[in-house]
Each structure stands twice: as structure tokens, then as C-alpha cells.
Design a binder for these strands. Structure first.
Length: 203
DNA sequence: CGACCGATTGACT
DNA sequence: GTCAATCGGTCGG
């Protein structure tokens, strides 16, 4: 990472998130997910996301309206929605568009760039493991690597110590599109986006 | 209230 | 390829 990008470690501004969800989803590819812990940083380049479109989308947690569990999805864009699933895993989403839309983007995979030793510790990797793409190539894996847990549900990504920042521009031709993974309803919607040709995507 | 099951992962046949 | 882990949300009675 260059010195310049170190100096530009500031959150993406609110308007970035207040746009159509699928536009934001494609634009998230190449952006950096950053967590500051004391003076140190965990950084990963986003390489895979999925859009979930609220009441338009039977696969979305927000499909049937606001509940205690999904209320964060109805906040203004730029907040973090963390949910608990399968009795043991956390996954995180970026809320998009204006308040009450219930739309969000699931972060499915990042490429580790900085703070890899901390990520290995958070993921309980054995010292001899060389397959470090397995640190963050799944929605629950990246949450574990970054230490994202229940108590971070609802935080504002435009201020504070967990945020997204500008990163690399991904050419349109380098973006792959597919059905979303792990859902039953809404398979016909091609709302998964990923960077082609990297070993850091899930699956 | 009980039964079912999930935007997953890792271990194992 | 199959399957258990593990628990809170959701839905039917």
C-alpha cells in the first residue's frame, strides 16, 4: 500500500450509499474495508458482494417489513447491518438508499491487504497454514477475520473505526455477475457481483 | 408453544 | 459429494 493511500484513509461519504443498490454494489468492488484497532489497521479489498432489495426481494430479510432483527436495514444508507445465522456465524451488510427502503449489500469476500497476522489470529489459523485466501473468502469468514460481531450492528460507516474507503477501480469487463448464493427464493435475480479471476472470492 | 430452518462453515465419506 | 454444529427468527397450531 502506498504512502498516499495511507494518508487518505477516510470513510466514503454518505452520498455514495444513497444511490440505487445495484449501482452501489458494483461500485463496492475494489473498495477497501477498513477497521482501525488502536493505531493498527485491518484492510481488505472487496471482491464479492450481493444486493438484497427489501420488499422487492423474497430473499431479503426485509421482504416482510421491519422487525426487531432487521430494523437496521431500514436506516439511512451508510450503516452496517450485522446478522447472526446458523447459530454461530455473523455476516455483514452495507445499508443503501434512503431511510425506510430496507435495502442492503452483503459483503461476501475481500482480499486481505493489511493486518493479516491479526486476521489469522481472529480466524484461529494454524501457524503453518498457507491458504490465506481462506481468511476472508466468505461472508462469515470475513466478519470473523475483521472481528465484526453482534455489537457492531447499526454502526455508522461514515465515521468511526470501521468504514469503507476508496480503493482500486475495477473495469466493467472485470466484473462477473451471477445468481446469489445460499438462497431459495429469488434465484433468478442476478444480483451477485464479483471480481473475475481472483482466488479470493467464495466458493 | 413447538417445529422448522437459515444470505455458512469445516470436517469427513 | 454429505452432514453436524448451534441458536434465534419465523410460522403454524
Amino acid at each position: 500500500m502506498s504512502r498516499d493511500s495511507n494518508q487518505l484513509r477516510s470513510p466514503l461519504p454518505r452520498p455514495f450509499y444513497l444511490r440505487p443498490t445495484l449501482t452501489v454494489a458494483r461500485d463496492l468492488l475494489g473498495k477497501y474495508l477498513v477497521r482501525r484497532i488502536g493505531g493498527k489497521f485491518l484492510v481488505g479489498k472487496i471482491v464479492e458482494v450481493e444486493g438484497y432489495l427489501g420488499d422487492k426481494d423474497p430473499a431479503s430479510h426485509a421482504y416482510r417489513g421491519k422487525t426487531k432483527r432487521n430494523e437496521v436495514m431500514f436506516k439511512e444508507g451508510g450503516h452496517l447491518y450485522v446478522y447472526f445465522t446458523y447459530g454461530m456465524h455473523f455476516c455483514c451488510n452495507v445499508v443503501t438508499e434512503e431511510e425506510e427502503k430496507g435495502r442492503a449489500i452483503l459483503l461476501r469476500a475481500v482480499e486481505p491487504l493489511e493486518g493479516i497476522e491479526v486476521m489469522r489470529k481472529n480466524r484461529s489459523f494454524e501457524a503453518n497454514r498457507k491458504d490465506y485466501w481462506n481468511l476472508t473468502n466468505g461472508p462469515a469468514k470475513l466478519c470473523e477475520a475483521f472481528g465484526i460481531r453482534r455489537e457492531m450492528n447499526g454502526i455508522d460507516l461514515t465515521s468511526g473505526d470501521l468504514f469503507l474507503m476508496d480503493g482500486q477501480t475495477i473495469n466493467r469487463s472485470a466484473i462477473g455477475t451471477s445468481s446469489r448464493i445460499g438462497i431459495k427464493d429469488g434465484k433468478e435475480k442476478k444480483w451477485r457481483f464479483y471480481v473475475k479471476g481472483t482466488p479470493f472470492v467464495s466458493g
